[in-house]
Structure formats: structure tokens, C-alpha cells
Amino acid sequence: MVLTCPVAMGRTMRQDDASELSRRGLLRAGALLALGGAAAPLAGCGLLDRDEPPPQPDPLAPLLDESRQLAAGLRAAATAHPDLAARLLPLAESHEAHAAELARLTGAVTASATPTATPSGSPPTDRSAALAELRKSERAGRESAIRACAAAPAERVALLGSVAAARATHLEALR
């Protein structure tokens, strides 16, 4: 078999290193404090506060919102353009399936228990403009899912990969 050079594939960006470093820094600072014992009065409580943070929104919360928004946008467009419904509704259902999985993963209230997200603004009356807007949303959604996948811990990354891939296929299906 002939070995050729590795072919450049995909992106090579990293963006989560900074947050990883700062997290390590915090852990180290925490360890130092523990070593120092209780001798020093803990005037600066900022570090201690970080040891038991108040419940933060899950990092995937924006992605969950986005899934709901994308679904709502597709449903609104399907209502405005019934001839596109057969094409759009399966895509909306996929986003809803993603939302259900993301809600389960993040412990958020399940999609069925919350009111359906409302799309921002009504879809364009022109058919091709409506499709173009949907493509724009899917493209942005694909990019945010790719970023989330790159930054996620191992146990979440497969689902996020599928979400990114699904959004990419939606973009294709809307062409």
C-alpha cells in the first residue's frame, strides 16, 4: 500500500485550552489554601466561593435553547409555506429530539414541559427568502454545535457530534 502524506482534514482550532488552564489554576489555588490550613484568616473569600459555586447554568443550555429555536423557526416556516411542510417538519422533529436529549443530559426541564419556543419574527412570505433564512440559522447552529463538541467532556461529545452533523445535513436538505 502506498503511503501518502496525511491529508489535511477538518479544522485544527482549539479554543478550550484557556478555560482548562484557568480551571487548573483554581484547583491549584484551592490546594494551596488547604495546605496553608486555617491559620490565615480567609479574608479573600472569592476562592472559597468558587469551591462550592452556586448552581451555574449548564454549558449546554444555549445549545438546548438553540435546538428549540431552530425547531420553532422550521414549524413557523412550514405553517407559512404549507408546500414546504413535508420538507421542513422532519427537520423540526430532529431538533426537538435533540432538545429532549440535551434536556435529559443537562437536567433541564423537558421540552414537553416548557412552552414551545417562539421564533423571533415571522418567516418571510417569499418562499426562497424563507428557505435562505432557515439555512442561515442551521449554519449558525452547526457552528455552535461544533464549538460545543470541541469543548465538551468525553461523555457528552458523541451526542454533540450527532447534533452538529444533523444541523449540517439540515443545511443540505434546505438547498
Binding site: G10, I146, A150, G161, A165
Partner: peptide, 13 residues
């Protein structure tokens, strides 16, 4: 991981 994701996305499309 980026390469694996790029492959998954590309093949899905």
C-alpha cells in the same frame, strides 16, 4: 477530536 468530528459531519452530509 476535530478530525473525527469533521469526518462525521462530512459523511452525514
Amino acid at each position: 477530536r476535530d478530525r473525527a468530528l469533521a469526518a462525521l459531519v462530512e459523511y452525514a452530509v
